[in-house]
Simulated scan of single mutants.
Amino acid sequence: MFERFTPEAHQVVVQAQVEARRLGHRFIGTEHVLLALLADPESPPAIALRGIDHTEAEAAIKTWIQRPSGEELDADLLGTLGIDLDAVREKIEASFGPGSLDRAPFRTRRGALVSGRHLSWSAKAKKALELSLREALALKSKEINTTHMLLGLIREGSGLAMQILVERGLNPSAIAETLRARPA
C-alpha cells in the first residue's frame, strides 16, 4: 500500500513515527498521524483543520495521556511480581557495560533521526491508513495523498485524533464533506 503514497503522504507516515518517538510513546496512534498532518501549516490537511495547530494538538495529546511513562509503568508492574527493574538493569550493565540497554539513534535514508526501537502502529492508526486508500479510490485517485490520509483518519472516527478534534469544536464530518467536494 505504501507504494501508492505520494512523497508528501509518505513523509506524513515517517513524521508520525518521529512524533511518537519524540513524545516517548510506545506505538504510533491516530494522534501521531494528526500531529504529522499538522506539521506543515500550509498543507491541505492543516488548512482544512483550521482551529487547531500542531502545538495545540500536542498539548491536547499530553492532557489526554497523563500517566507515568512506559518505563515507570513497566517498573511498577514488574515490582508487583517481585522484580526490581533497577537491579536487573545494574546486572546487565555490569556484564555488558554501561548504556548497553540503550540503542543509539540513527538516521533514515531521508535523514530523519530515530531511535533504534521499533514502533508498531495501533489498530486504529492502521485502519485509518487503510481507509485512506479507500478514500483515494472513491475519489478516483491512483495515489494516496495527505488529504486522503486526513479523510481516512476522520472515517476511522474513534481514535484519539478524532476525540481531540471534536473537543476543539471542529466538525470532522463537515471537514470530510468539504474535502470530498474538492479533492486534491
Rank of each mutant, 00 (worst) to 15 (best):
I144R: 01
A176F: 01
H148Y: 03
A136E: 04
A138R: 15
L151Q: 10
L160E: 12
T147L: 02
L133T: 12
M149T: 07
G111K: 06
L119A: 13
M162K: 10
E167R: 12
A176W: 00
M149S: 10
N171M: 03
V114G: 09
L129W: 06
G169S: 08
I175M: 11
H118K: 12
T146M: 02
S122T: 15
K142R: 13
M162I: 15
S141M: 06
K140N: 15
E143W: 08
R107D: 12
G159I: 00
S141K: 11
S115H: 06
S120P: 01
L150C: 08
L119F: 05
H148N: 08
R110L: 07
L153H: 08
L133W: 08
I175E: 10
T146Q: 13
R109Q: 12
A176P: 00
A123M: 03
K127T: 08
G111H: 00
K142C: 04
L153I: 04
G157A: 07
I175A: 12
L133S: 11
K142D: 08
R155I: 01
R107G: 09
H118L: 07
L153K: 11
K126Y: 04
A112N: 12
E135D: 11
H148V: 07
S173K: 14
L139W: 02
G157C: 07
V166E: 14
P172V: 06
K124C: 02
L151F: 05
A161S: 12
A112C: 04
A176Y: 02
R107W: 00
K140I: 03
G116Y: 06
G157Y: 02
S122W: 03
A125C: 01
P172Y: 08
P172L: 08
E143F: 14
T146R: 08
T108M: 09
I175H: 13
E143T: 14
A125Y: 02
G152L: 03
G157D: 03
K124A: 09
A123V: 09
L131Y: 05
M162Q: 15
S141L: 03
V114N: 06
H118S: 11
L170F: 05
H148M: 00
E130P: 00
L139F: 03
G157V: 00
M162D: 10
E135Q: 15
L165K: 11
W121R: 04
T147K: 05
L139H: 09
A174Y: 04
R110W: 00
A112I: 03
K142A: 14
I164Q: 09
L151W: 06
A128W: 00
L139K: 09
K126G: 09
K140A: 14
L133K: 06
K140T: 10
A123S: 14
A136D: 07
I144E: 02
T108P: 05
R109Y: 06
L133G: 12
S158W: 01
P172F: 09
E156M: 01
G157I: 03
N145A: 04
G116I: 07
H118I: 09
R155E: 14
A125L: 00
R109C: 05
